[in-house]
Nucleic acid binder design. Sequence first.
DNA 1: CTCTTAGTAGACCAACCAGTCAACTATTTA
DNA 2: TAAATAGTTGACTGGTTGGTCTACTAAGAG
Lengths: 204, 204
Amino acid sequence: MPRVSDMKQRLTDAALDLMWENSYGTTSVDAICERAGAKKGSFYYFFKSKSELTVAALEAEWNKNKANMDALFSPTIPPLERLDRYFDYVHDRLAELKKECGSILGCPLLSIGSEVSTQDQSVRATVDRIWDRKIKYFESAIRDAHAQGLIVAPDPEAKARALFACYHGTLAQARIQNDVELIRDFKHVAMDVLGVKQAQAVSK
Amino acid sequence: MPRVSDMKQRLTDAALDLMWENSYGTTSVDAICERAGAKKGSFYYFFKSKSELTVAALEAEWNKNKANMDALFSPTIPPLERLDRYFDYVHDRLAELKKECGSILGCPLLSIGSEVSTQDQSVRATVDRIWDRKIKYFESAIRDAHAQGLIVAPDPEAKARALFACYHGTLAQARIQNDVELIRDFKHVAMDVLGVKQAQAVSK
DNA sequence: CTCTTAGTAGACCAACCAGTCAACTATTTA
DNA sequence: TAAATAGTTGACTGGTTGGTCTACTAAGAG
């Protein structure tokens, strides 16, 4: 089996970086190739189309983050603290990225998903699928919190979806206003959504 | 003063329709002209660029909705009911649009804003400005509710921003999943965010 | 050493993009 | 009726887009 290459991954990495910072539409195949150090021929050797590359890039990003997500949402951590740590983690990462590129980028799933949802069903479905996987982390944290009597959430799945949506709205607003402030404040909003009383909130 | 024309408005209407349903990037000047029944020359007679047209289209949309927003958020209506009615109104409108085009479109401010935020500062700033105006409706409803002892919100501006962000996250998720369900449920989430006890919620 | 296979190279294409421009036309005022 | 003004027309341009194609090359297996 001759000749190995990491070009496929370089292409998905480049694509996600560019689409996250800019948008799906303004990220051209040429630009992706340039950033990955590839030529057009290589691109279309690995992917049938820009759409297919995007699906692969989103799945690759998920796989890259999964281990970290598993750690953040480990059942060994008190359930509300899992959420708290996750919010901190995202905040810190976005703040770090802002130093590099000057902008708060929000969540690529939402940006890309919202942009292509009515136009590209396979990308839309991919975003949808990954979105659901991420909600599962919220869901089990919420279920555990309910079981421990920290909150009242008889329908953890619905609560998780609602909280996840609220969080992404905050990330989107942060992107539009290019301001981390809201993200920092979201922790308190999350406690409201979950119905945690101040006294019960995660102590520092 | 010779020759009058409603073409400027036809162009902004067409642009907003297309960008709302599809996206900023995939909405071409040609497509806008076709839908408005204009030729390229007319487009660039009224607007210097696609970017400038978009700014005008967003402002025009705001002006079209303003009277209705003023009515929905009239101080004569109990504060929490104002929000309730607003959520109903948006839900009904999006459900109606879905019948026409097959998709839940979400909020054009968020879709367009998120897409262009890092690329087009004047459109970004316009979205930002209109976003702030809309928050004002939430803010005064929240302040009134606080004054009446219906909720505890010592910082109505922050609460309004948070609630608005949560709502838009829900609208974005509805667009991505093409599902009204979440929007229907948002009313209850809003009451959680505001800290309204069930018994105090708007009665039917 | 050579065959096979996985990957690379880059010229090329038709479609489309935002934007330009000079000629044209309808309408109002004087 | 004629001049001035407000709006319209559509061909055109140069650059970009996603995608194709044929020729090429590096490396492991026999």
